[in-house]
Design a protein around this nucleic acid. Structure first.
Lengths: 186, 186
DNA sequence: TTGTTTACTTACATGTTAGTAAGTTTATTT
DNA sequence: AAATAAACTTACTAACATGTAAGTAAACAA
């Protein structure tokens, strides 16, 4: 409910997606916010607590998004494209995926943050899996293997594509994005 | 030629692939090696210089590997599988890909390290692209789109899969790995 | 044998990090 | 009007980071 708290979460997420978890500090956030270092500790006593809150926030937003898709009666193609749009937006904003960023720092994360990251990843993979399976049954998509393995393939692809785009710049992300869809649609 | 120098490079690479570039310190290396901090600075004055040397080393090893494949007259399937084997090994050793690890820290890297990382990535993508194209012409592989876009897709997939495997543990990597090959082979 | 180079160590400078304790201001409740 | 709670700041600590300067012991070269 606090506006400062919300801004801290927003900035923390931004820094994870740009500099990475281990490269950003409470000072980066406090400077940007125009408060002192200790003010961030007031809301999030430890960096792990901030990490957890950012992830919990993302889980809630993801659940809200998928709930809305059901209400708006999106079909599986629309659902998948909405999901991919998140990555297209990240790429435009020169950010990488939260999962990808925290994933590559996994070992250095506090166990509590690791747990939340795993939870979020499992949630997304499960949802994707269901969308792919239903879409295939309806004849919207075509692919070999299980929907779950396809979901993991897609997720790792989007994650990796954002990172590759940083290194090679150009339109690497769009190239990969297009190739994924070309293969999936009948 | 120096054995200490070689060991520093080895340890630096190991730490990048496990803890990440920003999470490991010269102290991590010196402790492991049984020398003092300043000894690392003797060989690599700055962390960026160490990063560059690790990447240059990897480029040399990659070029040697691909050269050997030509000499041993490997076909494109064998070439591709040798490449993928690097990732299978990384997964077994609980390491992520150098490109993926440094890629997600890209913004925080010194420009000189960024440049070397881009060079290495372009080299690998180009080689992969050629293998895929020739393999397709020979009827070994099947895929839509350009070989270059397929190469980027494959690379981002392998990169992402290693990171996802850390988060979800289980046999995520093998699942993705199998799915990639199923799709590529005729 | 003397000088130089190699491969370090000791010791330190400087900055940054996560985190804490105690105090202050402002708003809200009793 | 007094007490309390929220939202901070000030001021600090301990640890660790990258990096440097100066010294040293051993090997090697002239």
């Amino acid at each position: 409910m606090s506006i400062t708290r919300e801004k801290i979460l927003e900035l923390g997420e931004f820094f994870i997606q740009t500099k990475g978890y281990n490269a950003f500090s409470y000072n980066d956030i406090s400077k940007e916010l125009g408060v002192k270092n200790a003010a961030i500790h007031y809301y999030f006593p430890t960096k792990a607590s901030l990490g957890i809150s950012i992830l919990k926030n993302n889980i809630l937003r993801f659940e809200e998004m998928t709930r809305n898709m059901e209400i708006l009666k999106h079909n599986e193609s629309q659902k998948l494209e909405s999901f991919i749009k998140i990555y297209v937006k990240s790429n435009r904003e020169h950010k990488i995926c939260l999962i990808g960023s925290l994933g590559s720092d996994y070992i250095t994360l506090d166990g509590s943050v690791q747990k939340e990251l795993t939870k979020m990843t499992d949630l997304i993979a499960s949802w994707l899996s269901e969308v792919l399976e239903t879409g295939r049954e309806k004849g919207l998509f075509q692919f070999k293997g299980t929907a779950h393995s396809r979901a993991l393939l897609l997720l790792s692809n989007l994650m990796g594509a954002l990172q590759l785009a940083w290194i090679t710049n150009k339109n690497t992300f769009k190239t990969i994005h297009t190739t994924i869809l070309e293969e999936l649609y009948i």
